[in-house]
Design a protein around this nucleic acid. Structure first.
Lengths: 170, 170
DNA sequence: TTGGAATGTCAACAAGGCTGACGTAAACTG
DNA sequence: CAGTTTACGTCAGCCTTGTTGACATTCCAA
């Protein structure tokens, strides 16, 4: 490290969590943890003709029943062509129902069918089981910190989506 | 909710962080945060002929210089064909150097070239900047919790890789 | 010397992103 | 009312990044 960069003074050790090494560990932790995070649903979906994209669509339709295509588009952050490909198969397979809007007939409101809800349950049970174990292992204070850091890491628009979903949860 | 499931007793509120709703918020937080996590490097890479897979390879080669292909394979969790495609372009473009092993000449040890290190710096600077801001905003206790939960979320083999990288960091 | 390990490579394929173009119906607006 | 915008769907084509399967090479080790 013969470049001109200074070592952080690190008064006491209160700023230790901001060293490049700590940050890099945070980055790697995100990488490895996300793999675990998606592993269980991926395993379930591998047997069917579905993938992660279907899981995401199903998750958010379940979370916000009656959501419009455009709304879902914003939450997922993909193009309509990409989402449409996924929705088409889910609708064709009878997991998702699309209803023309009453007020605005241009809009389509999306709902899970009973079968769709069944798959959603299966997927989210698996994912929640891992999350539950991690939460239980780590304890409430750690969980609070986990949430705080993740929220701070989001893009502002994503944080808005996140908060809106939180509020809408009764 | 007319099924037979019980509401969690939630003695006091010490178990509130384990309700299904809290778990689902944790799941969504991971989803949205990971998007932010990858957004900055993705933007940089979009201008080049590289993608996230190249970033990951460069990151871990930088982190563990001289690592073998097989080792990298285990860390990244992809097939050798998939990794090889990425490595081939990186080597051809002069960002990565592959050296035949001295002891075991079947092995290839991977290193970043000066140019590779330069790109790595650029990418990780961007990613660390976001992580640093998130860490600073959230504070040290939150960061500790963040790390604890993420570690608990990893698959055991991934946690091993993670720990090994941690130790090797001087 | 032979089996197996580590690596590389070819081919083919799939998921899931993307852009661009186009069409239709509905709603809004001047 | 005419024209524009919005919401959605769809076709076509492309890219990245993952997969499997097959096969060659090199070389260590029993």
């Amino acid at each position: 490290m013969a470049d001109g960069r200074m070592m952080a003074p690190s008064s006491g050790d209160s700023l230790l969590f901001l060293t490049d090494e700590q940050l890099r560990q945070g980055i790697e932790a995100m990488f490895f943890a996300y793999r675990g995070f998606t592993a269980d649903p991926d395993r379930i979906l591998a047997d069917m003709a579905y993938g992660r994209a279907h899981h995401r669509a199903i998750h958010f339709i379940n979370r916000a029943p009656g959501t419009t295509v455009n709304n879902l588009l914003n939450i997922l952050g993909v193009t309509k062509q990409s989402l449409n490909r996924v929705l088409r198969t889910l609708i064709a397979d009878g997991l998702v129902q699309s209803k023309v809007g009453r007020n605005d007939k241009r809009e389509r409101h999306l709902f899970l069918t009973d079968e769709g809800r069944k798959l959603e349950q299966e997927l989210s049970d698996a994912q929640r089981a891992r999350m539950r174990l991690a939460f239980r292992t780590a304890g409430p204070e750690a969980v609070a910190g986990f949430r705080t850091v993740l929220e701070a890491m989001m893009d502002p628009e994503m944080r808005q989506s996140f908060d809106r979903l939180r509020e809408s949860a009764s």
